[in-house]
Amino acid sequence: MPIKTWELDPNFKNEIMSEAGGERLASCFQCSTCTLGCPIAEIVPGYNPRKIIQMSLLGMRDEVLSNPDLWICLICQTCTARCPQDVRIADVMGALRRIAEREEEAGKLKIDSPRPLFDKAFQHQLKKFGRLYDMGLAMEYYPKKEGSFIKGMLAMMKDYKDFGMRMFLKGKMGPLGGGSPVKGMLASKIKQKDVMKKIFEELGEEGKEK
């Protein structure tokens, strides 16, 4: 479909370049090295980081921010390592994801991926305990992803029943796992949890709203 030049946002590239990680966007000269080495592009038809960069430079703000492909980047850094222009594509994608999340929070966009929910649940667990708590993360993420507690638990069981049992039998998670009677089953908490709270409140997305 042709680009509607009158709908382009000439300021979009500046918006990205003022976001941490997005600074080097304008150095791209469209060589496609990022896409040729991308392991996702090998599996998902049409996935094209070069195109996302060019659309960003042109100012196709809505198309870029609502593109579900932003959320299947692995941050594996292959593109960043190979880019001859040091665009830091993996970091640019991160900057785009954060802008998209803010747009969604402002009610201007609907993100077509459960990944922001997962990242938020992870950060929430981290803020609460100071360490990753696998089971707590799954219990928080699945209900949000599925839209209800019951549906969430069913989906979690479908994905993780066998895995959980395997980890339990190997003594990694569950009542007898992890070198202590309840490791993995209960959260491992750090003493200075208050510092985690301060970090997220001062620097995280919550801090920005203040």
Partner: peptide, 23 residues
């Protein structure tokens, strides 16, 4: 002693990552 999570791949804001690891 009392180490905290590094932020893994899920904390995308670099400033939060720097703070978590500074501790």
């Amino acid at each position: 002693e009392d180490w905290n999570c590094c932020g893994a791949a899920e904390v995308e804001d670099p400033r939060v990552v720097y703070a978590l690891n500074a501790r």
